[in-house]
Design a protein around this nucleic acid. Structure first.
Lengths: 223, 223
DNA sequence: TTCTACAATCAAAATTTTACTCATAACTAA
DNA sequence: TTAGTTATGAGTAAAATTTTGATTGTAGAA
């Protein structure tokens, strides 16, 4: 999940981009002129900017150039038209990392996006996230939104197992095996009790339930 | 080898495409207007549709939109002319995955084709689909179109058995054996009852019946 | 050492949901 | 029309899950 700023004054295009990127799980902010774009870029520090070359008030090249002047290293993809050929080199010169020629296909957009995001946002393999819930294997820190949560050893193991298999239904036997190390299922309700402990802590402030019951099977981490 | 539907009313172009694609080893079906295209798409379930934007009776954008409305996930490539610029974004908005600008080279066509086929042919062995019905063994998610459906454990087992044998008539004994286990005692109408539960849920929005009765034998998943 | 706090587990009551039965209605083929 | 199926609606028993309280174990503090 990345924070993406769209600077585009064609509403149809910016709406489309906003929807598609949000659907992919990104946080999207839209500006419709160069001045707004520049201001927002400096305020919210996005991971990537989709920047139209042609913009009211301040064109894309200028926006890019001014950000770089201040040392901003954000990934910038310039949106240019076929007739903008002469600006492509100028754009890279002005600090853009890449450009896409309008009109472009979804596939093209996602490819460029992924390539440019990878460069700037290296992922931490110890950091597991699911919606507003996060668990860090290195620090054993658990957060719901920005509320810190303290877990006991067993609670932690159970949550780690759940969050490393998001949306997958985990049955009782597997949970017992992974978290408690049993090879057989006794007739104890230990799983239920720990699910309850976790729910109490994860939902302490009336947040949405994330650990769902799948009757007759087990549990699943799901919205 | 893939099943490709061409919806194009320019005979010269559609013949050319048909020949080239057949030569590449694909199964090709041709429709020459939007209505036919839509009908065929729903009947034969192609892997990919080459869809002209401008078509008699129903234009390409409408065809695309209507397929997506019913939850169809087929890959769609829109064929647009240089003058259709304003439709390109609209096309992606209407659910197309990609577009090609006419006229295009053979190479361009094959490239786009390959890219878009790869995306849809990547199969998830846990994902079972039948028409607009889908079941995921990992997440136990059931969908009809894009409507989520909640099933109980027994309902799920029954549907999983049905959807993993599409179009095959399953007799009562086999169903009892697979879903309830051999040792099920007594003669009861438990299968009828559960078929009814499933039908109620799968057809909650007046969708077409998928679980058909085969009198004297059992049931079959079929349109 | 004992005490205390807390984690882990067990057990049982309370609650919710599901599985199944049964009686009867509706349908179908001969 | 009728016999044999299949569909339906309602009711009940059973199962699964949640919740609560009690018990046991353990590590650190006093």
């Amino acid at each position: 999940m990345s924070k993406i700023l769209i600077v585009e004054n064609d509403h149809k295009l910016s709406n489309f981009l906003e929807q598609e990127l949000q659907y992919e799980g990104h946080e999207v902010i839209v500006a419709n002129d160069g001045i707004n774009g520049l201001t927002l870029a400096r305020e919210i520090h996005p991971d990537l900017i989709l920047l139209d070359r042609e913009l009211p008030k301040l064109n894309g090249l200028e926006v890019s150039r001014r950000l770089r002047l201040k040392g901003d290293k954000v990934a910038i993809i310039l949106l240019v038209t076929k007739d903008d050929i002469e600006y492509r080199v100028a754009g890279l010169d002005a600090g853009a990392d890449d450009y896409i020629v309008k009109p472009f296909s979804k596939e093209e957009l996602f490819n460029r996006l992924k390539a440019n995001l990878r460069r700037t946002t290296e992922e931490d393999p110890d950091q597991l996230n699911f919606l507003d819930l996060s668990l860090n294997r290195r620090t054993r820190e658990i957060k719901r939104g920005d509320r810190n949560i303290e877990l006991t050893a067993t609670e932690y193991d159970l949550l780690e197992y759940l969050i490393s298999h998001p949306r997958q239904v985990l049955n009782r036997d597997k949970i017992l095996e992974k978290v408690w190390g049993y090879d057989f299922s006794g007739d104890s309700n230990i799983i239920e009790v720990y699910v309850r402990y976790l729910r109490l802590k994860l939902e302490a402030n009336k947040e949405k339930r994330l650990i769902q019951t799948v009757r007759g099977v087990g549990y699943v981490l799901k919205e």
